[in-house]
Design a protein around this nucleic acid. Structure first.
Length: 818
RNA sequence: GCCGAUGUGGUGGAAUUGGUAGACGCGCCGGAUUCAAAAUCCGGUUCCUUCGGGAGUGACGGUUCGAUUCCGUCCAUCGGCACCA
């Protein structure tokens, strides 16, 4: 054993050992319980940052821990390799997105290896590889034939200068990030998946996800946004009625205007003979499309001059055109009740539209001249409905409208169908051929994959494949006539929606998935950033149900347990390449070694908490790693001249007993912290305490040597998921033939835990006044008497009346005085 | 704006089921060791104090014998908001 801890040497040797012995390569094995541990795969942005290190360290600790529980553990890794940053890099560095991506993957694969993560590299996936995306094209064609995919018009951000579609992220204050041009909304035809067909199941099965954080389930539930309301028709003379959906039909009698989106046919009609209206509609064209922008921008509108008829009163209602109504959501029109909706209230005040109070609070006052009353209450000014509460009014109005065919109950979802078309180059080609006579035709299975040309020059003016006849010119599979390929690509969430299943059978060239997927699924533990709480996780759940309905897997849900890691922030914001605030672990690994870096990121905070990055304290982790090294070194030096006897556990002196007690208490805590609580920081703290305690215990008699060895071996095995290289090395130094990764987790000796005495806290009126050491399970009345007799306690109880005494066994006494 | 989180010493954080607030680190202060330094080891470190004690977990209220923990209102910060991944 070297007298100096040499991290880099120890680490490369351990990594070499794992590689040669295929320590992490697994196959299906019916004799063992399987455990599938998955961390969200990275986008190959160039270099790892501390967010990755955190994510993958957590996954590795759980994987190694489960392996030491004797389970058949699969921990795969791959690359979410399609996406926008490759195109941005292509523009900046004049390098093809494919080349840039593959180089990044090579670099980052090295970094992951250096960190010693126990991946089964034989299952590695890169989503930009045709062998991977072939199968999502195959699935897409099946879903297309099944009617789960359709085409419709949808709005995109159009940069008129760069002649390209921009992502929301690339639109800054309404302008293109490169061109600075005012961005226009543009409607183009795009592919959608009918995720709303599964809205109910996606909502219902959330209840079965016991291993998911409640916060994530709540966010998904709210995102799906199931509501029951009324679809109400407002008739228009000699025209189609205008339909609106509302969850507050009780406020119907308070409607003073309707609002439609600027793209609504009525708006276009109104604009065609009114320049003021047309000017407003034109103004709406340069408007950000994101919901956040919609909600926070100034609410504006214009009176269309058109009117409709209130379905109950028969009165004329104005139709306004408003910038906050979305054409793509619902009917593109809403009913407005200024007295009972704050947005309508402000809009009505701004444009002096009348307001009608029709709901009053039940047992309170509300001044409607101050703001809208948006709670439910009792109806007033509503004619025959006066005095009804929300539920009664809902039913009565629904019934009334139903008889006149002007309204019916409807269940609505906030969730919209998933738009999967992207007008980008670096993505998976949508496998559709457009034929003038046959329409859209799915690419036949034998012609898959539709391969994305990789050797292209990328200039940022639209996608290269839209300018490559050799790519898009083809023949129709149905009629054989001339036809054109779809040149849009999939949303990159498509790839990440099924990769977890593909890992189980990544080598299958004949099928998307096989029976091995059923062996490994569902994922026992999924780990990833909280920022994916809604979109990625919802799409992956959706895909699971699609795959199930195609008979490809037999699970309803992909992820049994979910650990949402908090963000690693730098300068108060999420680390990302586009913000330029990433921290590369490379230098730290070089200086301290991977074990120290892993230990530090896990020790810095509990995994679910956000973490503002700072490397102060990294030294402390390095110190601890060295301390463990010296602990073993010290033991081995003593062992040269002193033999460890077999531990008898009976004849031990007090100090020896205490060491064993501390050891097994720590083991118990560490096990629970890692397994149940995922509280790695406190597990490490317990390991530090135990190491410190043991470092002070230097006895060399036979029993003491045995106790030291037992304790050291517990430290090494419980620390090994966290700092695996160091523990691998030290385990060898202790003379073991079997590698530590192949050993089992130690078990707690309950006899060592036994405590003779317990500390009792004595409070007077909730304030700490004394601590007593008493035999465990001392009778309640004796504990109480002892507490009352305590000298310091008496100082506070003297001349006071004792109202009551609360005794919590083996823990606490609280004396309440007056 | 809406939805979901978070808020504790100089600092990262701990307190698991409502029961000792500040575990374990970092930093700082003092000591040992050293020719000296690094490294290491030992001790101290919430604030105020008349040294009895008092106050204190973003703010203000509430429930309780007892609240960092439960409830209400507010403030600040972070994540998501459908084309960043």
């Amino acid at each position: 054993m070297n007298s100096e801890y040499n991290a880099l040497e120890i680490e490369s040797q351990a990594q070499q050992y794992w590689k040669e012995n295929k320590s992490f390569e697994v196959v299906e094995d019916s004799s063992k319980e399987k455990y599938y541990c998955l961390s969200m795969f990275p986008y190959p942005s160039g270099r790892l940052h501390m967010g990755h290190v955190r994510n993958y360290s957590i996954g590795d600790v759980i994987s190694r821990f489960q392996k030491m529980q004797g389970k058949n553990v699969m921990q795969p890794i791959g690359w979410d390799a399609f996406g926008l940053p490759a195109e941005n890099a292509a523009l900046k560095n004049k390098v093809a997105p494919a080349k840039w991506t593959y180089e990044n993957i090579d670099y980052m694969r090295d970094q992951l290896s250096q960190l010693g993560f126990g991946y089964d590299w034989s299952r590695e996936i890169a989503t930009c590889n045709p062998k991977y995306y072939k199968w999502e094209q195959w699935l897409f064609v099946k879903l297309f034939k099944k009617g789960l995919v359709y085409k419709k018009n949808a709005v995109v951000n159009w940069d008129p200068v760069d002649q390209t579609v921009l992502a929301n992220e690339q639109v800054i204050d309404g302008r293109g990030w490169r061109s600075d041009a005012l961005i226009e909304k543009k409607e183009i035809s795009q592919w959608f998946m009918r995720i709303t067909d599964y809205a109910d199941e996606l909502l219902e099965s959330l209840d079965s996800l016991d291993g998911w954080p409640d916060a994530v389930k709540t966010m998904q539930k709210n995102w799906i946004g199931k509501s029951v309301g009324l679809e109400i028709s407002f008739n228009r003379i000699n025209n189609e009625p205008l339909k609106v959906y509302t969850t507050r039909p009780d406020t119907l009698m308070g409607v003073t205007y309707l609002a439609v989106a600027s793209e609504h046919p009525l708006a276009i009609e109104a604009g065609s003979n009114n320049t003021e209206v047309q000017a407003f509609i034109d103004d709406c064209k340069t408007m950000e499309t994101s919901e956040a922008a919609m909600e926070t921008m100034e609410k504006k509108g214009v009176n269309s001059g058109l009117t409709c008829v209130h379905p109950i009163t028969g009165q004329e209602v104005q139709i306004w055109i408003a910038n906050f109504v979305l054409m793509g959501y619902g009917t593109g029109a809403v009913m407005s009740v200024p007295a009972h909706d704050q947005r309508d209230y402000e809009f009505a005040q701004k444009y002096t539209i009348p307001m009608l109070e029709v709901i009053r609070p039940i047992n309170a006052e509300h001044d409607i001249t101050q703001n809208a009353f948006t709670n439910k209450g009792i109806l007033c000014n509503s004619g025959e409905f006066d005095g009804l509460n929300f539920d009664e009014a809902f039913e009565a109005i629904a019934q009334k409208l139903n008889t006149s065919n002007l309204g019916e109950k409807q269940t609505n979802y906030r969730l919209r169908d998933w738009g999967i078309s992207r007008q980008r180059y670096w993505g998976c080609p949508i496998p559709i051929i457009n034929c003038e006579s046959c329409g859209s035709v799915g690419v036949p299975e034998t012609d898959l994959p539709v391969t994305l040309p990789e050797d292209v020059s990328f200039d940022g003016i639209g996608s290269p494949i839209k300018k490559m006849p050799e790519f898009y010119q083809t023949t129709c599979p149905t009629c054989g006539g001339e036809a054109q390929r779809e040149t849009d690509t999939f949303d990159t969430f498509f790839e990440s929606s099924w990769y977890f299943a593909r890992y189980a059978c990544a080598d299958n060239t004949e099928a998307m998935l096989d029976e091995r997927a059923d062996y490994w699924l569902e994922v026992d533990q999924y780990i990833g950033g909280i920022e994916h709480a809604i979109l990625h996780l919802l799409y992956a759940r959706f895909f699971s149900k699609l795959l199930r309905d195609e008979g490809l897997i037999n699970h309803d849900e992909p992820f049994k347990n979910l650990l949402t890691q908090g963000m690693v922030l730098k300068d108060g914001a999420k680390m990302s390449k586009s913000k330029g605030n990433t921290v590369d672990p490379a230098d730290m690994i070089q200086k301290y070694g991977a074990d120290t870096v892993r230990l530090f990121i896990l020790f810095a905070a509990p995994p679910t908490q956000d973490l503002e990055w700072s490397d102060s304290g990294l030294e402390g982790s390095y110190r601890f790693v060295n301390k463990v090294y010296r602990l073993v070194e010290g033991y081995l030096a003593d062992a040269k001249t002193n033999d460890a006897l077999s531990l008898d556990g009976v004849t031990l002196n007090k100090e020896q007993k205490q060491i064993r007690q501390k050891t097994h208490q720590s083991l118990s805590k560490i096990t629970d912290d890692i397994d149940r609580r995922h509280s790695f920081n406190t597990a490490i703290a317990a390991l530090m305490e135990l190491t410190n305690t043991l470092g002070r215990f230097k006895q060399t008699d036979g029993q003491s040597m045995a106790i030291r060895l037992e304790s050291i071996e517990i430290i090494l095995r419980t620390l090994s998921p966290i700092t695996p290289h160091l523990c691998h090395y030290l385990w060898q130094q202790l003379g073991h033939q079997e590698a530590i990764i192949d050993t089992l987790w130690p078990s707690v000796d309950k006899k060592a835990l036994q405590q003779d005495e317990v500390q009792i806290i004595v409070q007077v009126n909730g304030k700490l006044r004394a601590k007593l050491m008493l035999n465990a399970n001392t009778d309640k009345s004796i504990v109480e008497a002892q507490a009352l007799a305590d000298e310091n306690v008496c100082k506070f109880t003297k001349d006071k009346t004792i109202v009551k005494v609360i005794v919590v066994p083996n823990k606490l006494v609280n004396i309440v005085i007056k």
